[in-house]
Design a binder for these strands. Structure first.
Length: 199
DNA sequence: GATTGGATCGCCT
DNA sequence: GGCGATCCAATCG
């Protein structure tokens, strides 16, 4: 039933201080956990996207540092949260190095921990509807946008792994919902997962 | 100071 | 598969 959290290892700075697309792929199969006021929520990451800073027309940081995107201009391993369409929040983690304002967007996780809390937050009971989209997973986990800029290394939002993850295949596609750089292959998901946002 | 459009979701047909 | 919700940041004047 619930995962034994003590057997997990938290990902550190050296994991995030790497090529962003590589980090996005390596995060698949890892655990995203949020230690919130009502308990721990989270699950296994099944879908991510990479956003490549100055070289990427679809990345928020392409036009330079602003109050909104300044977290990306700091070191790797920080949580970047922003409001989209005036309604939903999206969760990212910064990557690469201080010179490169890049990040990975979390688009879907397989719900595993704190299921009852997540069902309550989402007002849904079907597992597939809990975390199958970037706005959905933030709502399900109960992540507060004031955690923007917090540390993914030792803050309440963290990334973990265990040695028991089964092998899986990674599917690479174009990113979703963007109007620029539509054809760049920077979306990654676990082949066959029922919990991704869309095929 | 006004305008515009967005890394989405859920409900409608 | 189409569209409205809803609001902030960025851009332009």
């Amino acid at each position: 039933m619930a995962k034994d959290l003590t057997s997990m290892t938290r990902l550190g700075m050296s994991f995030f201080e790497r090529d962003t697309a590589l980090v996005a792929k390596d995060l698949l199969g890892k655990w995203l956990l949020f230690k919130g006021p009502q308990g721990i929520t989270g699950g296994i990451i099944v879908e991510t996207e990479a956003y490549l800073g100055f070289n990427d027309p679809a990345c928020h940081s392409v036009r330079g540092c602003t109050p909104r995107n300044k977290v990306m201009f700091g070191p790797a391993g920080k949580i970047y949260i922003y409001l989209i369409y005036g309604i939903h929040y999206c969760l990212n983690v910064t990557t690469a190095c201080i010179e490169k304002p890049e990040a990975v967007l979390f688009r879907a996780i397989e719900p595993k921990i704190g299921m009852e809390i997540m069902k309550k937050h989402r007002k849904k009971t079907k597992l597939k509807e809990l975390c199958s989209g970037p706005g959905k997973l933030v709502q399900a986990l109960g992540i507060n946008p004031n955690l923007n800029g917090s540390s993914a290394i030792d803050g309440p939002i963290g990334f973990y792994y265990d040695e028991l993850n089964p092998d899986f295949e990674i599917v690479t596609t174009t990113r979703i919902g963007i109007s620029q750089a539509k054809d760049w292959p920077l979306r990654f998901y676990i082949k066959g997962s029922k919990f991704i946002s869309r095929p």
